[in-house]
Design a protein around this nucleic acid. Sequence first.
DNA 1: CGTTATCTTGAGACCAGTCAATGATTGTGG
DNA 2: CCACAATCATTGACTGGTCTCAAGATAACG
Lengths: 275, 275
Amino acid sequence: MSKHRAANMRMKCREKTLRCRHVNELPPSIRNISAGRACQTCPRMHAAGVQRPSDLPWSRRKLVPRQHVFHQGDDQRYVYIVKSGFVRLCSLLSNGKSQIIGFKSPGDFVTLEYSSKHRFNAQAFAAIELRSVLTAAFYAAASSDPQFFLNLYKVVCEDLSRVHDLIVTITKHDAEGSMAAFLLDIDARASARNGNGDFVSLPMLRGDIAGYLGLTNETVSRIFTNFKKRRLLEVRGRHGIRLIDRRALRAIPGQIASDRISPAMESPQLFSPAN
Amino acid sequence: MSKHRAANMRMKCREKTLRCRHVNELPPSIRNISAGRACQTCPRMHAAGVQRPSDLPWSRRKLVPRQHVFHQGDDQRYVYIVKSGFVRLCSLLSNGKSQIIGFKSPGDFVTLEYSSKHRFNAQAFAAIELRSVLTAAFYAAASSDPQFFLNLYKVVCEDLSRVHDLIVTITKHDAEGSMAAFLLDIDARASARNGNGDFVSLPMLRGDIAGYLGLTNETVSRIFTNFKKRRLLEVRGRHGIRLIDRRALRAIPGQIASDRISPAMESPQLFSPAN
DNA sequence: CGTTATCTTGAGACCAGTCAATGATTGTGG
DNA sequence: CCACAATCATTGACTGGTCTCAAGATAACG
């Protein structure tokens, strides 16, 4: 029990830091943090109009490192697309823990949940650029264009598949297996963009990987060290990795039945807002 | 390593049994099981026509206990709605393990994944009744009715939220906490249908609960025993439970931040095919 | 009513979490 | 530009919860 309290305190402090670096005091509860006061670094945007998807009035928005796109509990007013940089989705629990739900890379929608309020935080890893449009306008436009809406539907379905895969990764592998699967996924996605064999950017922190896979910082770190020693991968700085022996990495976890299509490989460019 | 092989064999045998009780030989690999030969107990259905959602030509279908609605790897030709009974969604891995992805109860769509092939098995717990319609017809009709399509979209988004919650349940709680959360969820869903305070049907096996929560049979069983001893719940037969002390159960896991809306409570009756 | 499958219970091993200390990197202000 | 502080990463020792293996009890089924 005491260990739990200690862990809670540590997580609270961590979340406070990650949340918004201009908020200095520790609020009374996580819930108040997440639903309550405005974040100084997060000015609101304004956009309007109902049009066909291709003509939607996308606004630009730049975020500084660690700035939030939105907070858990906020009204869901905008739909966002990542133009550059990476975003982390994170669900806060009332006991102070937090679960990383996913990472979004350029071209991805940050949120396609259909509910009145956001169910998780979205936060920039580094300086990023977004396009945004009013949710109402977005869905109105989608409704008027069945083909676009169908594509949207597909994207959500693929998100769903990916989360299913994540559950399998977490529950059916040991920590090493989860890490191997995660790194191969990251590598595959990056290779699809930049070609093969090069260093891959790992924009998130060790703790983010841990939160995503249901592990701890320490375990993630240990496994990185282990993989380095076994010459399975190379690490450059804090955010660069290069897989050396993909075959060996693939052999670590019991793989998913090969007739399952990996959703990571077929993320369709649904829609690219002007510039 | 040897323990892994042993586990694989056990799981293979189990999956074989659960899969189709008329298939007697153990096929060379899981993949061949799942994508390959036809299942004797699963005759194909036929339906056709493209119409508005309300007029879709839903076919009826009855399944015997343990019959599969479809198999992982099959072409995705039909959309199903459960009319009575319960269905279990299960993803097979090539290492012989299997992950329970979810349970579907009356009124739910069995599959709304949008891909050419099914990514998991769907299997009846007991005798069940379904309605089905050709996938192509279903989505054609949905495209012609924006409001219906939007509702469909919402349902998928809620599925997504529920899976997110499942991940949180699995990774952020210990076994006891996961079980408590699971039982409370089942109880809440059943209470919404039948009213409160009564015995709730738990149609799945212990092993299904274990597979869903990333635990083992033994752990689930131990926790049931533990909860009984602490007078938190009552068990009748194999498939009946009644929660006695919900407050105590809720206190076991660190709860999800209360500004998160529980998706289990707001499953909308999207569409009810004519009897 | 015998057979099979499922559930329960116990003992032991091991993986990953926890706590704690140090090293590396990043960021800030003088 | 450098010194300092804060954050992040790494490593080690220890603990504990969950899996594994194995055996017996109970329930389902033909």
